[in-house]
């Protein structure tokens, strides 16, 4: 982000916004790869799932019949990359007939709490999602 070179001590708040279902377009996979690559820069990262983006986290995905890699398993690696805040919008779930029980269980191990396993997914309502967006330095939309 800095024109005059990388500044190691600058920590910005980054939000990745996911609004597309997986597999039909490349957006979901591209977003996930950017999150993984961007994690190397040790910024304060949050990932938002709203609208059709919530389908990315639905459990029981099986892509064996469509000849594409099932990257849903990779969301569970995000914790290893210190990406531990996945915000899912309640209204988007409800509009699609989904509940939190339809989502994968995604966890991270908290290094500061004796590696206790904690849930990465946090359900928020639309107003909270708007507030989350307003709390960022950089928003990248997919």
């Amino acid at each position: 982000m800095e024109e005059d070179g990388y500044q190691g001590d600058v920590c910005k708040r980054f939000l990745y916004v996911n609004r597309r279902a997986p597999y039909g377009t490349i957006y979901a996979l591209e977003s996930l790869e950017v999150v993984l690559i961007g994690a190397a820069f040790e910024q304060d990262v949050s990932v938002a799932f709203l609208d059709d983006g919530v389908y990315q986290l639905v459990k029981g995905q099986d892509t064996s019949g469509i000849g594409m890699k099932n990257f849903s398993a990779t969301y569970n690696a995000l914790g290893d990359y210190e990406v531990t805040k996945l915000f899912v919008e309640k209204e988007s779930l409800a509009e699609r007939g989904l509940t939190a029980d339809d989502l994968m269980e995604i966890t991270y191990e908290d290094e500061d709490d004796d590696w206790a396993e904690k849930p990465s997914i946090r359900l928020v309502d639309r107003a909270e999602m708007a507030a989350l967006m307003a709390d960022q330095d950089v928003i990248l939309s997919f």
């Binding site: 609004r19 957006y27 967006m133 960022q136 330095d137 928003i139 939309s141 997919f142």
Partner: peptide, 12 residues
Amino acid sequence: LVTAHDRTQAWL
């Protein structure tokens, strides 16, 4: 508009 706000969210 870009300079008048703190951030830009480009919805896709």
